[in-house]
Design a binder for these strands. Structure first.
Lengths: 225, 225
DNA sequence: AAACGATAATTGGTCTGACAGATTTTGATG
DNA sequence: CATCAAAATCTGTCAGACCAATTATCGTTT
């Protein structure tokens, strides 16, 4: 459904500039006009890309001065980071390993029929989104959330929602930076999720926990090759 | 540092529209032109706000059709989550088992000297509070939080803080209901915590995780015999 | 009356050009 | 060399326009 907007190219192009020119944190990007000419688009498109980059915490604009690198995309995907606002993004994986694996285990143990239907519905949404070729991090997120919900334990949802924004930013950055839309990657992601849902369906607690752990591990590997 | 951009107001205004008009997921927002007139800004500003809202997964734009609600902002807030007392009790412990055990393991692995001192300080505070006979749930809480902090991973703190109110409620209820101030109970609690801190100090990862798990298990048993 | 299809109106996506306000650079002056 | 004002540069914002996709309208046909 989501056709590639022009700003996608600008977004990718700016990330590419940061990486290829090895711009450090704090370095200044080319001006909006210069970027517009580079990519042969209008300044409005460059601005849209910059707004998204800023929303992802990668750049920062200072009026009258320019746009600057706030955190390098590759460094956002480093394994460990010193305590700072931005590190909340990647560190979330460590927590997810234990949190979501346990959630999958409990969901498999306790799931009720309506909750299972809710999970299956989330799986259907993710499947159609992935197969249509569109970025599906929202559907991915929603499925994981529904699994957490299927534990019947609101504490999992509370913890999950607290980590949500950090997780989402990582997923977006990962999908935008790496070219993770190749058919085989999509098929793999789909299969991993289906294994999890299947394990919950047949109430295989250990299988669900294992599948979830495997999925997260692979996900982190996809983001940080 | 960050001046308030006009799009901040537009962003907030659109969120307000979704909430006040109770727009369900899938509902259509007013057109960009209409929003621009509402907020007395140009269409470019409204677009910038919508790009950020879309980036946050709240709205979705369809060319020629309009912008639509993708997920309601209020549903992203755990604050509204009704948490029955029972599920709060059981629930928070289930999550703490996996979350804090892993936090203790990582803290043992990665702790730096200042962080270790921070943990020891928390331990001292808990010890003197317990030995003075006063209710010590605040100090208990603080020690657990400092251990989560010693992981160096802010995501643990985020998750921990999200569960905090539920945990505190349980601890208060526990201390009020059971007369857990008998000298032997106090001594036991003290010893359990000291085992955890000691394991972190000598960087015994498995020991720390096990001690934390044991402590939480015993804690739940004390509350729900 | 219902189904259909061409047409018009609406809407998001993009472009151009412009101006204001903040910041940096320049350059003249002492 | 140090100082400071002018000039150049840059982001923030605006207005108006056109394109392409979607939706609504309405007359025609069955």
């Amino acid at each position: 459904m989501n056709q590639s907007r022009l700003s996608d190219h600008a977004y990718a192009g700016i990330v590419e500039i940061i990486k290829s020119r090895n711009l450090e944190v704090g370095a200044r990007l080319p001006s909006e006009s210069a970027l517009a000419e580079m990519f042969s688009v209008s300044r409005a498109i460059v601005r849209e890309a910059l707004v998204r980059l800023a929303s992802d915490g990668i750049t920062e604009a200072r009026r009258g001065a320019g746009s600057f690198v706030k955190s390098r995309p590759s460094e956002r995907l480093a394994a460990f980071m010193p305590m700072s606002e931005l590190s909340a993004t990647m560190g979330s994986f460590e927590v997810r390993f234990v949190l979501e694996a346990e959630a999958a285990r409990l969901a498999a143990t306790r799931r009720t029929s309506p909750e299972m239907a809710h999970v299956e519905e989330g799986m259907d949404m993710l499947r159609s989104a992935l197969l249509s070729g569109a970025p599906a991090h929202a559907e991915d997120m929603e499925l994981h959330r529904r699994i957490a919900s299927a534990t019947g334990n609101p504490a999992f949802l509370i913890a999950f929602d607290a980590l949500r924004s950090g997780i989402e930013k990582v997923m977006r950055a990962g999908l935008d930076i790496s070219r993770a839309r190749h058919p085989d990657v999509i098929a793999t992601m789909l299969r991993e999720h289906e294994v999890i849902v299947e394990a919950i369906r047949v109430q295989d607690a250990d299988g669900a926990a294992l599948a979830m752990h495997w999925h997260l591990w692979e996900g982190r590997r996809r983001l940080m090759p």
